[in-house]
Every structure is written in C-alpha cells, then in structure tokens.
C-alpha cells in the first residue's frame, strides 16, 4: 500500500521530482496541486507560478470546481524566459513570460475533464513545464441520458 505521502517521498528519493537527477527533466505531474477560488459571481481565479530552476508550473495541477471563466495570474519567478499556451474556448491563449515577470490570462473551459497546457518553447518542452487544469462537475442535466443511474468504475 502506497499513500500519497509515500509516493511523494519515493519520487523525491529517486530524484524524479527535480531537474537533472534521476531523469534529465522531471516526470510530468509530480508537482503540487492547487484549487481555484470561486468568487460570488461564479468566476474563478488562481495563481500559477514558475519557481526558479524547477521548470514546472506551481501548482502543476490546478482544480476548478466547475466549468466557466477563470482568471489566472501567471508569475515567472525563474531566471529564464518561459511562456504558456493555455486551453480556452475560442482559441488557445498565449503569453510570453520573460524572467521575473507577471501576467494574466482569462480562460473559458467546459467541464468536466482534464486539460493540459505547456510552455511550447524549444528549451522547455519535455522538461516538466507542462501543467494540467482539471474541471470538476457533471454536464448539465438536460445533456444527460434518459436512463436509470448506471455503475461507474
């Protein structure tokens, strides 16, 4: 039996959660998890940072309680230039993030499901700068099948 903490400890012990230790980069999805904050009007907000020399988004998994609009503050604390290409209905949102910079992105995402984004620059891809946004919830009632409740895994 492996608990979440044991998993984190083992990743750290092996060196899979940092750059250039076990592997060359870090294994995707080994960073932190954070939750978006919901405002009274239903819009959501969150902050995503890029810590120095980690080549990862923090949180690397951002959870939205439901589909809708989210305002992100993106902060590059690293000593290198990165970017982000983020999912959003209409078109993907692109932002260039020079060293020690702060920007914003407004996204519209349906739910539910998992969306990936990344820093698609030649030096970043594959090294860990790939993040996930997870949208919780169900589809609207009118979109569900007319049938008795069915088992799920």
């Amino acid at each position: 039996m492996t608990t979440a903490q044991e998993r984190a400890d083992l990743l750290s012990k092996i060196g899979l959660d940092v750059q250039n230790k076990a592997a060359i980069g870090r294994v995707l999805g080994t960073g932190s998890i954070g939750q978006a904050t919901e405002r009274a009007d239903g819009r959501m907000e969150a902050q995503i940072r890029i810590p120095p020399d980690e080549l990862s988004f923090d949180p690397s998994i951002l959870v939205m309680p439901h589909g809708g609009d989210i305002e992100l503050e993106l902060i590059n604390d690293d000593l290198n230039t990165h970017c982000a290409l983020l999912p959003s209905n209409g078109d993907r949102k692109f932002i260039w993030l020079v060293n020690h910079s702060r920007g914003r992105a407004t996204l519209n995402l349906d739910g539910p499901g998992c969306y990936y984004y990344s820093s698609p620059t030649g030096n970043d891809e594959g090294r860990g700068l790939t993040g996930a946004i997870v949208v919780l919830g169900e589809v609207p009632p009118e979109a569900r099948l007319d049938r008795p409740a069915q088992p799920r895994p």
Binding site: D91, K93, F94, H100, R102, G103, R104, A105
Partner: peptide, 17 residues
Amino acid sequence: TVDYVDAGEAVDQGILN
C-alpha cells in the same frame, strides 16, 4: 524586492499568425 516585469494579458494564439 524587485518589481515584476508586466507580461500583460495572454492573447489568442491566432493573432500570432
């Protein structure tokens, strides 16, 4: 403390075409 550089607002990727 050094102020962050303002990276502005993310844009539609299609603009960069």
